[in-house]
Design a protein around this nucleic acid. Structure first.
Length: 675
DNA sequence: ATTCTGACATCCGGATAGGGTTAC
DNA sequence: GTAACCCTATCCGGATGTCAGAAT
């Protein structure tokens, strides 16, 4: 299809003058230091980084690499330092991130009027004049691996930015730069925050889960036959034209120019990445093309996306994304408006929007390196359930003993048992909410909700590279309630302690802010709950466990009218309190308070508690939590999570409750028009 | 020494078959 | 008595991480 590099003058300009560290025109050097992500000059890379543009430009991976290398060379100290493994975008950011930093990056933007407008999903990197993607020509995506450099679409952002992109290199730099410039793309008006017709907003539904992995540097297994991602990519989109048609797909690009190695309990760069790899890097959502209403109606899951290292794979190439082991990748979501027949229309600008979620970065491996990651996978992936029982035998019963025996890796050992168990809500972060939900309130499973046996999923879950951060994060950091989602988050930005748990890393935080995010995506708000009623159709994981959840929680299902975009996008639909960060909910910290617990409680009880004990036993047996409780031999004192603090209750508010609660935050909810 | 591969055991959900119950 | 429906058991495919051995 049309791969012609239709780049606006602004874009062209931006692509030619990438200046290291200048991605944050309004940021001070100190701030840059916090940005964490390397800022590397990548002249011409902006366009090339796009699988489409690259094809059209006939660029080679090597050229990409060279450009990247060149940019590094010219980028100076900043970028050089960024190449440190500790600067991969998480660890250090967290170390240095504090309340002030959070404020600085989230709220201090001149373009960002107030903290109250900082709570929004990731805005896209709009591509005003970018040639649309085409599903008709998959080959166009069979491009070389570009080093993440903002992507073609990112570069197009410059259209609205007078300063274009003085810097690029890594995606975030560009994004931040864009955001810091306060581009008009992102409406920071409290009244219209993020509500820009035609401009989609995307929530990473399972963001909390991603964060859990991200804190340890996510690893994804790649096999010849292809391995599914876990966590898998799952998004919620809003802001699309309900009647317009869109293609939605994900591509995976190199997140940095390094080859990585797990050494000494941590990931360290080891030479240059091999960018001379071909293969499909794009996974088109099977529902594409479809209407905006369709996309907004349900969660968009990419559970069937498989990662492989088999460059010559011929089967299911459409489902396979070819990657290289020990390379760091960054998935990106692309939303491309197409004609009704699925064809592209490049005549209109702004039809391509790209979303990058830093927390979804991962290193492709053929075998897990970090045992913390392994354990997280086992703990959260239903398919790995069979390995959970090994806990008793493999480990001595103390989850601390089970920790990664990596040097200097003692994050969990720093956790107070109570705090650890208090992370009950973390389960809600799971990709498979239902699995845990089923047993969450299982009678007799005392402390089940808080029996995250293996992994302290909050701030305590720090990788060896994050040991400095020992601050006890507020468990409900990501517990989004209709009334507090945005404001709470903003407030949290000032909370140094919370900062640790805040998105899991400063980089992420920054990405939000820089990307023009007005508020934390509060992904869970929309997804952790909504999936209940939308999992029936989505492919992949979503089709497995979720249905169970639905079948057993009919009352919950009713919370998400799947046939009504309007209702879905209503405040209640999107903002139902979702435990995104999964941490235990501290009622006292929740705006909803204990009073509001009653309703969710009733709801859950009606859905679960009334289930015949016999059935519940059966269900709970595979819930994970139940097993964990059994394995952990949890003592009453070790399971402080009371019913009132159960995350599920907050998570499962009914629409009525949602509306009631949501009304507390008019500013935010006004974003989602009630039908 | 590091990385990759394939076999393996395990788990889950879907599909199917069989049996039991109920309604006509 | 028959058909329809429901429930349960079983089989199968696909998924997981583990592990030992091969490859680099």
């Amino acid at each position: 299809m049309q791969l012609e590099p239709r780049v606006s003058p602004a874009i062209a300009h931006s692509s030619k003058c990438m200046i290291v560290g200048s991605g944050y025109p309004n940021a001070h050097a100190s701030e840059l230091a916090l940005l964490e992500y390397p800022i590397i000059s990548i002249c011409d890379n902006l366009e090339r980084s796009s699988p489409l543009k690259k094809n059209s430009a006939g660029m080679t991976n090597q050229s990409d690499a060279d450009n990247f290398a060149d940019s590094k060379d010219s980028s100076g100290d900043v970028q050089r330092g960024k190449l440190s493994p500790d600067l991969d975008g998480v660890a250090d950011a967290r170390h240095t991130f504090d309340g002030s930093a959070g404020e600085r990056y989230l709220l201090s933007q001149s373009a960002q009027p107030s903290p109250t407008t900082t709570m929004f999903p990731y805005p896209s990197q709009h591509a005003p004049t970018h040639p649309a993607f085409s599903i008709a020509s998959p080959s166009r995506y069979m491009a070389h691996h570009p080093v993440i450099a903002n992507g073609a679409y990112n570069s197009l952002l410059s259209n609205s930015s007078p300063q274009a992109y003085a810097s690029a290199g890594y995606p975030y730099a560009q994004q931040y730069g864009h955001a810091y410039q306060g581009t008009a793309f992102y409406q920071f008006s409290s009244a219209q925050a993020g509500l820009v017709p035609g401009k989609a907003q995307v929530y990473l539904c399972n963001r909390a889960l991603w964060l859990k992995f991200h804190r340890h540097q996510t690893e994804m297994i790649i096999t010849k036959q292809g391995r599914r991602m876990f966590p898998f990519l799952s998004f919620n989109i809003s802001g699309l034209d309900p009647t317009a048609h869109y293609n939605i797909f994900v591509d995976v690009i190199l997140a940095d120019p390094n080859h990585w190695r797990f050494q000494g309990g941590k990931w360290v760069p080891c030479g240059k990445a091999d960018t001379n790899v071909t293969g499909n890097r794009v996974y088109m959502h099977p529902d594409s093309p479809n209407t905006g209403a369709h996309w907004m109606r349900q969660e968009i899951s990419f559970g069937k996306l498989k990662l492989t290292n088999n460059k010559g794979a011929t089967n299911n190439t459409g489902q396979m994304v070819v990657l290289q082991s020990l390379h760091k990748y960054q998935p990106r979501l692309h939303v491309v408006q197409v004609n009704e027949d699925g064809t592209e229309d490049t005549s209109q600008p702004g039809r391509v929007q790209t979303f990058t979620f830093p927390e979804t970065q991962f290193i492709a491996v053929t075998a897990y390196q970090n045992t913390d990651i392994t354990q997280l996978k086992i703990d959260h992936n239903p398919f790995a359930k069979g390995f959970r029982d090994n806990y008793d035998t493999v480990y001595t019963g103390c989850d601390i003993d089970r920790l990664t025996p990596s040097p200097g890796d003692s994050p969990r050992s720093q956790i107070m048992p109570g705090a650890r168990y208090a992370m009950a809500g973390s389960f809600l972060q799971d990709q498979f909410v239902s699995s845990y939900a089923k047993s969450r309130f299982h009678p007799g499973v005392g402390g089940a909700p808080g029996t995250d046996r293996s992994v302290p999923l909050s701030n305590s879950l720090l990788s060896p590279q994050q040991t400095e951060d020992t601050t006890v994060a507020s468990p409900q950091r990501w517990f989004v309630t209709p009334a507090n989602n945005r404001l709470d988050f903003a407030a949290s930005a000032y909370d140094a302690a919370a900062a640790a748990d805040f998105a899991g890393n400063a980089a992420t935080l920054l990405s939000y802010a820089a990307a023009g995010v007005k508020a934390l995506p509060l992904p869970g708000a929309g997804c952790s709950n909504r999936p209940l009623g939308y999992y029936g159709e989505p492919p992949g994981w979503g089709t497995r466990t979720p249905p169970q959840y639905c079948s057993k929680s009919s009352s919950v299902l009713s919370c998400w009218p799947s046939n009504s975009v309007g209702s879905r996008t209503s405040a209640s639909g999107y903002l139902v309190p979702g435990l995104e960060e999964g941490d235990a909910i501290a009622p006292e910290r929740s705006p909803l308070g204990g009073a509001d617990d009653s309703k969710p409680k009733d709801l859950t009880e009606s859905s679960w508690i009334e289930t015949p004990s016999s059935i519940k036993s059966i269900d709970s047996s595979d819930s994970g939590i139940f097993e964990q409780a059994k394995r952990r031999r949890i003592s009453p004192s070790a399971t402080p999570v009371s019913e009132t603090s159960s995350p599920l209750k907050s998570e499962m508010l009914t629409p009525r409750e949602c509306e009631k609660n949501c009304s507390k935050d008019i500013g935010y909810y006004s974003f989602y028009p009630h039908s």
